[in-house]
Simulated assay, not measured.
Amino acid sequence: MSNDAKLVRMANQIATFFHSQPAAEGPQGVATHINKFWEPRMRRQLFDIVDHRGGEGLDPLVLAAAPLIKRPAPDQSISQRA
């Protein structure tokens, strides 16, 4: 399983939990969880999937939460290697 597939699976598991909560709380709940527990590298990878792959494979609740998730700064280690 690729890193992207693992990350999509993890994000969708979070969304699955919040589907059992009141609908209005879902996006904020998903975003709060990801903001608290995912490191910047993971959030950067999530935004790569959302921005460049149209959110392929992500639960609609994760996509609804995306604007509430803290977008990390670009990875400086990649640009330093170039």
Rank of each mutant, 00 (worst) to 15 (best):
N35A: 04
A15N: 12
R9Y: 06
Q76K: 10
V8W: 01
K36L: 14
E56S: 15
A11E: 01
V30P: 08
G29W: 04
D4F: 04
F18H: 15
G26N: 02
N35W: 01
H33Q: 12
N3D: 10
S2K: 07
N35E: 01
G26Q: 02
R53D: 01
M10E: 08
I34G: 00
D59V: 06
D75A: 08
D4H: 10
G29Y: 05
A23N: 08
P40D: 11
D51R: 13
R9D: 11
A82T: 08
N35P: 09
L46I: 09
P22G: 11
A64N: 11
S77D: 03
D4V: 04
P74F: 02
G26W: 00
Q21S: 10
R53I: 03
A31M: 10
D51F: 11
N35K: 07
N35G: 09
E25W: 10
R44W: 04
H52V: 04
R9S: 12
K36F: 02
T16F: 06
H33E: 08
I34S: 00
A23C: 03
D75N: 14
Q76F: 00
S79F: 01
N35H: 05
V30N: 05
A66Q: 08
G57R: 11
D51Q: 13
S20P: 04
A11L: 06
I34D: 00
R53P: 07
S77L: 03
L46T: 08
N12R: 08
A73T: 05
E56K: 15
L61S: 10
W38P: 08
R41L: 02
A31V: 09
R41T: 04
A64W: 01
P60V: 04
Q13D: 12
F18W: 15
A23W: 02
T16K: 10
P40L: 03
F17L: 13
I49Q: 07
V30H: 06
T16A: 15
R71M: 04
L7V: 01
A66P: 09
E56Q: 15
M42L: 11
G55F: 05
V30F: 08
A5Q: 14
M10P: 00
P40A: 04
A23P: 12
H19R: 15
P27F: 01
T32Q: 14
R43T: 12
N35F: 03
T16Y: 06
G29I: 08
E25Q: 15
H52S: 13
M10N: 06
D59C: 15
G29Q: 09
D75V: 05
I49C: 10
A23Y: 04
M1K: 06
S2R: 10
Q80D: 13
Q13R: 12
G29P: 12
A82L: 13
E56N: 14
I78S: 05
H19W: 15
D51C: 14
P60K: 08
K36V: 01
F37S: 11
F18A: 07
K70V: 14
A65C: 10
A65S: 11
H52T: 13
N35S: 07
I69V: 14
A5L: 12
N35R: 04
I14P: 01
L7A: 00
V62K: 00
